[in-house]
């Protein structure tokens, strides 16, 4: 451990704002980069499924 207490860890030797701001941004970006395609994929699959069903009813 590089820090004595948890408060030290949060404070980051006075640079807490910068460190946590960049890690927050990083986590947010990574999460969005993975989560957005997952929702899009669900949406695509749902619309495609609906279309296939419609076509099978028609024929």
């Amino acid at each position: 451990m590089a820090f004595e207490t948890f408060a030290d860890f949060l404070n980051m030797g006075g640079h807490g704002l910068y460190v946590w701001l960049s890690y927050g941004l990083g986590l947010l970006t990574i999460a969005l980069c993975i989560y957005l395609p997952v929702i899009q994929g669900r949406e695509t699959r749902r619309t495609l499924r609906r279309r296939i069903q419609r076509e099978s009813i028609k024929s």
């Binding site: 860890f9 980051m12 910068y18 460190v19």
Partner: peptide, 16 residues
């Protein structure tokens, strides 16, 4: 974030 040593010049901002 927690275990790597801090930089002697930049301190903990180095963790970025």
């Amino acid at each position: 974030l927690a275990f790597a040593p801090s930089d002697y010049q930049q301190g903990n901002s180095f963790r970025i």
